[in-house]
């Protein structure tokens, strides 16, 4: 897999092979701990969904004659699917995740199936939060949330070290101030 393939420098002429971004630092990975957190959550979901599959088999499917083939199959294929998903998706997701504080903007790359690269100019930052759920607390992690005037949350960087998140938040706030634009 080309790891850094969408990371383009600001280019002035023709599109050419992209390079590393002009960053204050290079693109960074999330904290490794977040993978453990994601795995935990994914397994919890897989358990819930598998329970659902079993329930469906015991309670609902016997009543529907047309779906006999599904009943004969048993709940195991579904359960296997859920757990395969729980095992493999978090690491893929982790591997794909990068963020960078570039000269003029925050750069975020994410997504396995729907891959996206977001560029949020510092000028456009309305406010920057850090968030911490109970699970994140457990792992000493925090989320960085970046808002612009566009509806919804623009940027969300999930797996940051708690202190790191604070540092970045302050830095972004300062950068937004420097860029000196309406808030």
């Amino acid at each position: 897999m080309h790891e850094e393939d969408e990371v383009a420098t600001p280019i002035h002429e023709e599109p050419r092979e992209p390079e590393e971004p002009q960053a204050l630092e290079g693109p960074r990975k999330l904290e490794g701990r977040v993978l453990a957190l994601w795995w935990m959550v994914a397994f919890a979901w897989a358990l819930v969904l598998s329970t659902g599959a079993f329930m469906a088999h015991l309670l609902i499917l016997p009543g529907i004659d047309a779906l006999r083939w599904l009943r004969d199959l048993g709940p195991w294929p579904m359960v296997a699917l859920f757990f395969l998903w729980a095992i493999f998706v978090p690491p893929l997701r982790y591997r794909r995740w990068r963020y960078a504080l570039r000269d003029d903007d925050l750069w975020i790359r994410q997504g396995i199936f729907w891959r996206s690269v977001s560029v949020i100019p510092y000028r456009r930052l309305q406010f920057v939060d850090t968030r911490q759920g109970p699970l994140e607390n457990l792992f000493g992690l925090a989320q960085l949330v970046v808002h612009t005037a566009a509806p919804g949350t623009s940027g969300l960087v999930p797996g940051l070290d708690r202190e790191e998140a604070e540092t970045i938040r302050e830095r972004l706030a300062a950068l937004a101030g420097e860029a000196d634009d309406p808030v």
């Binding site: 969408e6 599109p15 992209p18 000269d103 003029d104 000028r123």
Partner: peptide
């Protein structure tokens, strides 16, 4: 868009936006 063009435009416009002021 062609993916390279999309990335190029993203970067070009982001740069122009940053330099706007």
């Amino acid at each position: 868009l062609e993916d390279r063009v999309a990335a190029h435009l993203r970067e070009r416009w982001a740069l122009r936006l940053a330099q706007g002021d």
